[in-house]
Each structure stands twice: as structure tokens, then as C-alpha cells.
């Protein structure tokens, strides 16, 4: 039992819930963006910037960006553990891909901050 706890074990229940909770946020964001593009006849720079200038939209976008990172972390772990058998290669790939996922999120937040 002790060795089990000490290993690099993941919590399946938490992964399950996180995957779906983040999926819900991203789906809501996608639908909102789709509605924005459908309901706006011509998207100009002012309208585009105005959309992300409001605090509410900033929070929504930040939630979507953070969701992308967590969702990618779990999803890529699932895919990598199924297809990449060598442990070291998988660990390196997971490390690099998770850094990229983090970079997407961090870059997005900094851009959002500046609007």
C-alpha cells in the first residue's frame, strides 16, 4: 500500500471529473464564440478588441485557456500511455507536450491581460 502511494500514480476519478468539467467550459466558450461570429455582420478590430476588453469575457477566456491546459494534460496522457510504450520516451514526450500546453495558457493569459 505504501509503495502504491509513493509511485507516480494518477487519480482516475479526479482525471475523469476534470476532463468533463473542462470540456464543459470549452464547449460553452466555443458556442459563445460561434454565436459572436454569427451575430456580428462584420468583425472589425474595434469590435474584436471590445469583446475581450470586458472583465466578464476576460474571466471566461481565462477559464477556457486554463481548461485547455488541464484537458490537454489528461488527454495526451491517455493517448501517450496507449501508443508510446518505452517509458523514458513517453516521460520526455509528456514533459515537453505539457510545457507546450502550459505555454499556450500562459501566453494567452498575458495577451488577455494587455487588452
Amino acid at each position: 500500500m505504501v509503495t502504491n502511494q509513493a509511485g507516480l500514480k494518477r487519480n482516475g476519478v479526479q482525471d475523469f471529473v476534470t476532463l468533463r468539467a473542462t470540456a464543459f467550459i470549452m464547449t460553452a466558450f466555443s458556442l459563445y464564440m460561434a454565436w459572436f461570429f454569427i451575430s456580428t455582420p462584420t468583425v472589425t478590430f474595434e469590435i474584436w478588441q471590445g469583446l475581450f476588453a470586458s472583465t466578464g469575457m476576460k474571466v471566461f477566456t481565462a477559464a477556457a485557456l486554463v481548461s485547455i491546459m488541464f484537458h490537454v494534460q489528461i488527454g495526451l496522457w491517455q493517448v501517450l500511455t496507449d501508443y508510446i510504450k518505452p517509458v523514458r520516451l513517453r516521460a520526455v514526450m509528456q514533459y515537453v507536450l505539457n510545457i507546450i500546453a502550459f505555454a499556450y495558457m500562459a501566453y494567452g493569459l498575458f495577451v488577455l491581460w494587455g487588452v
Partner: peptide, 16 residues
């Protein structure tokens, strides 16, 4: 995940 490079770039550049 791969396409995110393009999406984030397009989104950020259009906002800047």
C-alpha cells in the same frame, strides 16, 4: 493541440 499554435497566434495578433 497542434492547431492551437495557429489559433493562439491568430487570436493574439488580431487583438494586439
Amino acid at each position: 493541440f497542434v492547431a492551437m499554435v495557429f489559433i493562439i497566434w491568430a487570436w493574439a495578433t488580431a487583438l494586439n
